[in-house]
Computed example of a mutant assay.
Amino acid sequence: MQPLYQRLISLLLLLSSLHVFQLTEGCSCALTHPQDAFCNSEIVIRAKVVGKKLLRDGPFGTLRYTVKQMKMYRGFDKVQHVQHIYTSASDSLCGVRFDINKYQYLITGRVYNGKVYTGLCNFNEQWERLSLAQRKGINHRYQLGCDCRIKPCHHLPCLVTSKNECLWTDMLSHFGNSGYQSRHYACIQQKEGYCSWYRGITHRDKTTINTTEP
C-alpha cells in the first residue's frame, strides 16, 4: 500500500503544480475605457499609499495597503472613508502593486463585507499620468455618460447598433486604454438619449468638439 500511497501523493503534487502554473499565466483582463472603469466601479478615490502589510489569509495571502484618501469620486453610499485597500498578494491572481509614500493614485475597486478590493483588472493609475481630460472625466464627465455604452471596435467594419453607443476604436491602433479616445474623450448622453464622444474645451481651441468619430 505504501508505494501506491506515495504515487497518489506525487500525482496530487503534480496536479497542484500544474494548477499554480495556470494561475501564474492566468491574469488576463479585457481592455476597458476609463469611463467604463469608472462607471462599473463601486469605489473611485484619489489617494496616497502610505503603508503595506501582508495578511496570511488563503493560500496566497492578501496585501493590505493603508491609504491617505485625498478625494472620493464614487462610492459615498458604500463607505464613509477609505483607509485600507485589499488586493491579492499573488500576481497570478491579478494582485496590484502600489509604491509606498511616492505617488497619488487613482484607485478603483469594489466593496465586499465593508472592505475595498482592487486588482490589475481595475483601473489604477498614478494621478500625474492621467490626462487633463481623464481628470475632468473622473471629476464630472464620466458620471454623465454612465447610461451610455462604449462599444469596442477590434476589427473593421464596426457599427453602432443603438443610439446610446459610442464606437471605441483605440484597439485598431493597438493602444487600447492608453489610446487617444481613452485619454481625451468621454462618451456623454445628449438630447433624446443619444450618446456621442465629447472632448470639451481646451486652452488652444475654445470650441467644443462633439463627434461620434474622433
Rank of each mutant, 00 (worst) to 15 (best):
N122F: 11
T118N: 05
Q22G: 03
Q83S: 15
G176I: 02
N139H: 12
P152H: 09
F38D: 07
C158I: 09
Y103K: 01
Q181F: 03
R204D: 12
S173R: 07
Q69F: 04
D205R: 15
G200T: 06
L93C: 01
Q80K: 15
K52G: 04
R64L: 08
F98G: 11
S173H: 12
G109T: 08
S162A: 12
T212A: 10
V20S: 15
T202G: 14
I43E: 06
E192A: 12
C187Y: 01
L54E: 09
L15F: 14
G95K: 01
L172T: 09
S178I: 00
M72H: 11
Q83D: 15
T211F: 03
P59E: 12
V96G: 02
H140E: 12
G137C: 01
L15E: 12
Y117D: 01
I188P: 05
G61Q: 05
D170G: 04
W127G: 02
S88D: 10
T208E: 07
G61T: 10
F76W: 12
T211S: 15
T24M: 13
Y86M: 09
V82G: 05
K48N: 08
C195E: 02
V116P: 00
R141M: 07
A47C: 11
L14S: 15
Q143Y: 05
I45S: 06
D57L: 06
D170I: 02
R97V: 10
K52T: 08
G145E: 02
T212V: 10
D57P: 01
